[in-house]
Design a protein around this nucleic acid. Sequence first.
DNA 1: AGCACGCCGACT
DNA 2: GTCGGCGTGCTC
Length: 732
Amino acid sequence: MSGPSPKTVLKLALPVPLPHLFDYLPPKTPAASESPVVPGVRAVVPFGRRKLVGVVVECGAPAAVDSKRLLRVSRILDDGVPVIDTSLLGLLRWCWQYYKHAPGEVLLAALPPALRKPDGLLPEPPLRFLITEAGREQLAGPPGRAPAQRAMLKALADGPLGEDELAATGSRWRAVLKRVSEQGWVESEPEPASTARPSGGHELTGEQASAVAAIREDLGQFRCHLLDGVTGSGKTEVYLKVLEQVLRDGGQGLVLVPEIGLTPQLLRRFRQRLGLEPAVLHSGLSAGERLAAWDAARTGRARLVIGTRSALFTPMPELGLIVLDEEHDTSFKQQDGFRYSARDVAVKRAADGELPVILGSATPSLESLNNAQSGRYRHHRLRHRANRAVLPAWRVLDMRQQANVQGLAAASVEAIEETLEQGGQAMVFLNRRGYAPVLMCQSCGWHSECARCDASLTWHRSTRQLCCHHCGSQRRAPELCPDCRADALFGLGEGTQQIEEALGRRFPGVPVLRFDRDSTARKGRFGEQVEKVMEGEPCILVGTQMLAKGHHFPGVTLVVVVNVDQALYSADFRALERLGQTLLQVAGRAGRMERPGTVMLQTFHPEHEALALLIGEGYEAYAGWLLEDRRAAGLPPCAFQALLRAEAHLKSDVETFLQAAAAVFPDGGCRVYGPLPALMERVGGRYRMYLMVQGPGRPELHRQLDAWLPLLRGLREGRRVRWAIDVDPQEV
DNA sequence: AGCACGCCGACT
DNA sequence: GTCGGCGTGCTC
């Protein structure tokens, strides 16, 4: 007899925040006919004292734990049909290795919520119903005593219908359907895949046509195309033309848009132009709707999927193209839990699947521009406006020569007044997204800067400290301006809430509509306000980021941007990149062909190189200049970062842990900085801090992170804090 | 993350 | 005398 053979096991991903897969013995198979277990199937397993749904990732691997500890899989779900195909499984494995996140949480996040529970089942393939010859004869005969049956036959006489459509014929439709089926008047068949019937579309400009041709040439192989097109240049038409080809060739298309970009108008355009019903995936769906859309994509019935970030992980057996619109948008980066960049993973998915990916933007991220410059991406510029829209004119307002009320310059107020008098609408845009407060002098424009780092110091009002987010040095905030001795220091980025009230007082009788998360939280409120603006009556819009992304407001002919300086001197090295993107977006919201608008930028630093470049030479020159700066400073995308984030109720616990973590950081090409306080230092009563790891290349960074992680897990100090790794962080 | 076990305060 | 507070440890 041979010796004890090493146990081969199934390795499962389970929904627990632990960094490994779990080994199980295969299920007892009563019938010999039972198909073997394959990767990607769901299974129920005993785990501690509970039962969990997991996904089989590997079959037949040797056990990593003592065989005495092995338990047996309770049952395989979905009749052994894999819910995640091999290539998607490979992508998800890459994700948990790259982003250092628990495999189970990565994998289970890719499943619709309904399938994360043991009682959730794969939906039955939807049927459609057809009238038979006998049914037609019945319909042709005299009306009998069953009007509901007759109505259903009549509805089906024009062509087959799905369950949803039959449901519209009456509340007792199921019973009626059962009767007519039993009579042999109606039969069913599986719902076939939707087919595209493209129609319409504009004639392409030369730039559009050459982009379309270049991308079409790459169908069937991996290539990343950066579609860099100014507002109104017709990026969507390029997507549609390439999608048309992909669908015609029998492929599936996946379109990812930012959270705010998934509007009914966009869906209507895709539906009309491509002549098919897209499967839509976003966070607002019910569990059932989400499952249905996901399954339609997985089985190939849906040929086109449009969704937000998480739709990236939809199984699509015949995927032929990925489009990611507004690729610079920060909503593509998940900011909690499994912190992935949908943009980067989309490129990885395309590479694995040997298909092209289009990244579209009017203001591409420096990451993508860097990749275009180095030749990794193909760069398609659309510089001509397909719709002949006119961009607003820029005006820089020197705040040092201005009286100002609540941060609004006298000249801005005058311009608003003039706009309203002419029957126009004005927008006050508060640029305050995530920027840290900086101490600034009202009279000379001085701002707090780190002597060692060339970075702005953030002002922590409560502790009256100035803190450098690069080197961690701290010092006491001055009382008077160190340059001009004026008692005119103020926290840039504060007090913008009062602007709404100040405008209300100054312009009584003119509606002041506030757009921000707080004021539009109530369901439908945002839409109501948008409608009000669209009516066209003179009014003033006050708001943040939300105004930059959502709607085009043709009646708005004046935009005043306050707090530009906050980005000019931010501790966040991405602030200038975001500023350029935001300003161009805001400018694109306003004005119309016959009445171009004006964008006024309020600043204490009108001479700042960034503003001159952005306004004078445009985004590409601006971004090129920023990229040079990043290169010189050794910052992303010319360097690679990861954060160790930690939070706890006691600040000392966080600091102690991060210091211990820094102390065990392994040797290599990367350096560790910190501990540093997060820009939002206290959230929900918890102190948040981080360590930053930075190195010249991805391989070094990942080698050192992988060596570091087991040491971190062993730190006793880690038990009093919540911590996580954030690879390629977008903000601190 | 759950869910247990385990050892100290105010209560049916 | 118990019910229950959340510290600590484990889950293939």
